[in-house]
Structure formats: C-alpha cells, structure tokens
Design a protein around this nucleic acid. Structure first.
Lengths: 338, 338
DNA sequence: CGTCGGCATGTGCACGGTCACAATTGTGAG
DNA sequence: CTCACAATTGTGACCGTGCACATGCCGACG
C-alpha cells in the first residue's frame, strides 16, 4: 500500500509536491518555514514528507543558496588539550544547524598545514575554527589568502578575529601560587615555542617572576607530551637546584612527577608541581595535581557563537571578554622543605 | 592586469572554459583526469585555473554525481577512548579524498542518538563510522532503517558489517597475567553494561577466571571515568578481600590507584592493577600501569578501508582478521604479598 | 577512394533545491 | 457589488558540475 513514485533515487521536493497536490515551491516554503502558508496545506505537505521519508538534499540546497552551512575545524592530532572543547564546538555548531568538518594536522610543518587548509577550503566551508593555534598556522592562513572568516581557540589574540583567552593570567596565578608558598627556584616546562598559547603561558610565568623579583631560570621547551615531561625531569633532577616546577599542561606535569618518583622524591614535600588545563584525570594523579582550569566547553561555545555571528550578521568578529582561568589548588604543591 | 570576469561570485568551470577557449565539458574532463585530453589543452586549462584561483564547487559536484564523498563519524563526547583513533579515521578518510563530518553524543539516551544520526543523515553522508559502540546505538541504527553502510570501531561484531577487534583476548590476557602472578581474589571494574566493548571485556575476564578455576567476584559496572574508579575504590577498599583489580580502561584504573593511595596502600605490593587501552599517559602513572595496548591508529585506518571498499566496490564489508591486543607489563602488578 | 573506428571536443540536459516574479484566491471596506 | 490589498500558491530560471550523446577530425584498411 505504499505509494512510491521514485524508482531508485531518493524522493525529491517535486515528488512530495506531486503527491501533496501542490507546487514544488510550496513544498520548499514548508521546508523553510515561510510565514505565508495555510495551516492545512502545510499539514498535508508534512504528512507526505513523513510518508515518503523525505530528506532535503543538502548538496542541492547548498548549491542553490550558495552557502554550505559547514564550518571547518582544524585540529592538531597531538595529544594536546582536552577533547572537551572539540566536543563543545561540534555541539554548538550542530545546535545552530551547522555541520562540522574536521581536518587533522598530522605533522606541524607548513606543508601539512596548507594541505589541511586546502582540504577544508575545497569543501566550501563558510568559516574555520583553528584549534591548534601555532604561529605557522596563521602564517599559512595569511599566505593562502583564505577569504573565509576564522576563529581560533585558546590563543591570546594575535589577529583581530581571534577569541581571546587570558592565558597569561592563568600562568601568573600558577606562578604566584608557587611564589606565595615560598618557592624561589622555579622551573617552567613550556610548550612548543611556536604555539601561540605556549608562548603566552611562558610570558605569564616570566612576567610574574619578574614582578615578584624572583630570579628566573630559563624555561625548558617541551612538546606537550607526558614522555617529554618525564625525560626533562630525569635531566633536571640531576642537579636539585630547584624546589618547584610549573608545567604548561597536565600531561607534562604527569611525566615530571614520574621522574620525581623514580628519584625517590617525596611529593609534594621535596617538589611542588603545577600543571595547566585541569584534564579530568588531573584530580586523580598522586598527589592530586594543582593546576589551572579553563572552561573548555564554554570556550568552544563562545568560539562558535563568535564565528556564526560573523557569518550571518556580516559584522566583523569582535573580541569578547576573555575567559579568566581558575587556579585549582590540590595536593601537588606545598611550601619548600629546605 | 587581472582578467577577472566573474563579478562577485567564485569562478565556475564555465568561466575557466571561456578564458581557455574550450567548452565547460573539457574543463570538467581536466578536473576528472579523463584520458582523452590533448596535453596542450590540459595545460592551458590548468593554467587558467591557476590564474583564476579556481576551486571546484563541492555542492554542485555532489549534486550532479549523487555522491557526497562525505562520511559521518558518530562519537561519544565522553572521556572514553584515546583520541588517536578519531585522528586516524580522519587522516585515512582525508587521504582517500573523503570528508569527515562528526556528530557528538552529548548523552547516551536514545533521543540523543537518534538526533545525532539524523544530523548525519541530513548531510547525505555515504557511510557512517560509529566510534561509541553502545547497544542503543545499534538499536537506533536499525530502528531508523539507516540505509547507508556503517562500520563500528572497537566492537566484537554484533552486526555483520562491524570491524571485529578481539577484546575478549585482551581481557583474558590481562586476567591471566594476574592469575599467573598468584592472585586469587580479583575484581573487575567494568565499563557501562550497554557498551558492546565493555561487555566483551567483562566476558573475557569471566571466561578466563572460569577456565582457570578461580572463584569470581561480581564485576562492578562503571562509567569509564577516573572519578568513578576513585569512588569505587573508596567503597571496595573498606573490606580488603581482594589483592588485584582489572579495570576496563586506564582512566578508571587511575582513579582506583588514587583511592589506594588514600588508604595508604603500597603499590604494587598491596594491590595489583591492570588497565586497558594504554593511553599515552599510562606509562607515567605511579607505578607505571600494566595495561592492554590496542593499536588505535591501525584500527582507525582499517575501519575506513573497510568502509570505503564497501562504498566504492559495492561489495559488502567483510570482516578482516581481528587485531589482537597486546599486554604491556609495567610496574603496577606484582605477586600478592603475604 | 570510401568507410570505419578511436580520439578529442562540444551540446544540452539533469541533479534538487531556492529565488524573483507572476498569478490566483481570499478578505474587508466603501 | 466592486475594488484594493494581503495572503497564498504557481511558474520558470538558475546555481555549478557531470553524464549521455553528438560531432568533427584523423589515420588505417579493404
């Protein structure tokens, strides 16, 4: 008793129209919630759609409208950063009726970045969210003269249209915490130098040390991984000329703790450690990690809101208030032992 | 000295054709690497494309070909599972010229699953990769009578077209390891019961215990999070009637270790712990975690290969050899103390 | 020398929506 | 009853690309 007209292909708007006894344009109006539609007509059309299991063809819609309703997400494959912000971005976009297309950076070289951007551009994305804010990515964006708006997560805005997050304040809070506890020899395990974010955190550390008049030791440039934190720890702990360390993310902090344990250090008595990010596991490290929490979900949402307002309103993306990170004090920090 | 004909809109193949002095069809042939094209013509067209910064319009292409070249990725927002497999999926798809559209499950209820699937279907994806294999997801897939092929990562195939991974063997290896060390009272911290994968691991645990003739205690059903591992640990450790635990993922193992520490247990002397997944951080837990490694990247690649062969060849997806996980013995396991 | 076949290229339409505009119907005031 | 005007619906073109088919060209072969 099915009234399937279409042979092999999916039903189109015209199939629906025929069965509902209206024109294809009326069906289109129903789809787009046009105000001038008689209630009864609308109901009839919707009924036929239901019967036919009709789904609008996205490609056709994108073609005729000239808008793809898709945004591109450029993320780093690396173990960096909680996945929660990616999820938040996707949720927010989805809710706004947008689709998200993700491209991964397998390596951080310029070639790979350009390839990923090409991939996204080929999809006619309307906007791009960059979640791996490295300096090179911006260089590539400029060089390719990308003409779609883009937003970047977690960077202290180098560009006008970037979502500003106060990484410096977070880093300063962490540093200040250690200084307040009485530490005077503090190392900083930084992230890769070409990550805008890593640079901002390092800057925050250095600024705070400077202002508090504590002699600074040169930061160690890492790669975000726990492995690096471990190796750096093995190296640094040969000379125990410091009592505290501030790692630029929680993974490196974990690796460093591992090295401390192998050296037989008593944490936090012999060494205070602060991380950054507050990944869900950080509360369960031993001792539980003092770290800087960022609301990644909120960040993701704001990021999309910013981008969409730009896409739809045509108004240039404007910076909103930076999200201020919060220091979470747990068991991995204590006054120095002597 | 630019010869821009198009006013505001992006150049189309007809613009290219006009400037190159050929028909639009010839341009199309160049785009699709048609064999019958004179070398000189091809070069001329390519040159014009370059000059115009021409990019094929994906929507138009999808519309006329009837294929979107997009695959949908259904993943769980939850802290579950290493991000590496997602990255691998995206890389593999990208390499094959496919685009990946991700939908997130914010919650695990049926409604949310259906919404996510709707979202993907509305995009006319050609295939779906399910990375959060819960029983409910499959129910929803069946109920919505999804007509695109789909593949699932990390499940012991309930459906014909699922990538089979030998979760049971991994779980048995872990369990056997503990038994061989001399443990006779072993708990299992399982994942949520409706995750196919969690079920398989639990089954593996129970089977091995049965075969080795070790009395089994009822598994505890968790939610994959470190928080749960911690709370379960606090609870279980009130009565110390066991000497080892096998957690269904590394995060829960970490939480459990945290609880052990708070109870003042000496690890691994007083308690042996095995995890599952071998996330990059696991090697840096203290003590470093004995766990079961799965090659998530390989898994992701195979997953896409399977799906694509199905999409293109029309041949039904066939199971390949299951990937056998590997037990990584580190410092968190030891013979029971007495 | 005519015809056949393969290569290179052109012509027109289809894909499934949306848009601009025209046409039809309905409603209330004069 | 008629007209102005709003509400509702219909008509045809168009978005950019690929496909089916037609065409022109050239060399080979009987």
């Amino acid at each position: 008793m099915t009234i399937d007209l279409p042979k092999g292909r999916a039903p189109s708007i015209r199939d629906v129209a025929r069965l509902a006894g209206v024109s294809h344009q009326t069906v289109s109006r129903v789809l787009n919630d046009h105000p001038s539609i008689r209630e009864s007509t609308k109901a009839k059309v919707l009924q036929v759609m239901e019967d036919l299991q009709y789904r609008p063809n996205r490609a056709a819609r994108a073609l005729s409208r000239g808008r793809s309703r898709t945004i591109g997400l450029l993320s780093a494959e690396s173990a960096y950063g909680p996945a929660s912000s990616i999820a938040a971005i996707q949720d927010a976009a989805q809710e706004a009726g947008y689709y998200v297309n993700t491209a991964n950076l397998t390596t951080v070289d310029t070639e790979s970045i350009e390839a990923a951007l090409e991939h996204l551009m080929n999809q006619s994305v309307e906007g791009i969210v960059v979640i791996a804010p490295q300096v090179r990515v911006f260089d590539a964006l400029e060089q390719l003269s990308i003409d779609v708006p883009f937003v970047t997560l977690q960077s202290t805005g180098r560009l006008d249209n970037s979502l500003s997050v106060d990484q410096m304040t977070g880093a300063r809070q962490a540093t200040r915490h250690l200084i307040d506890l009485g530490h005077r020899s503090i190392y900083h395990l930084a992230g890769p130098q070409d990550w805008i974010e890593a640079e901002a955190r390092m800057r925050g550390f250095l600024d705070e040390m400077w202002e508090m008049d504590v002699p600074t030791m040169a930061p160690i440039l890492g790669d975000w991984t726990a492995d690096f934190g471990y190796r750096a720890g093995r190296e640094l702990l040969r000379r125990r000329d410091f009592t505290a360390i501030f790692a630029s993310n929680d993974q490196m902090a974990l690796g460093f703790m591992h090295a401390c344990r192998e050296e037989g250090l008593d944490l936090p008595r012999d060494m205070s450690i602060v991380g950054y990010d507050d990944i869900p596991e950080a509360a369960h490290f031993w001792p539980p990690l003092t770290t800087v929490r960022q609301d990644f979900a909120e960040l993701g949402r704001r990021c999309i809101a910013l981008l969409l307002s730009n896409l739809n309103g045509g108004v240039p993306i404007e910076r909103s208030d930076p999200i201020v990170p919060e220091l979470i004090v747990r068991g991995s920090t204590a006054p120095p032992a002597f």
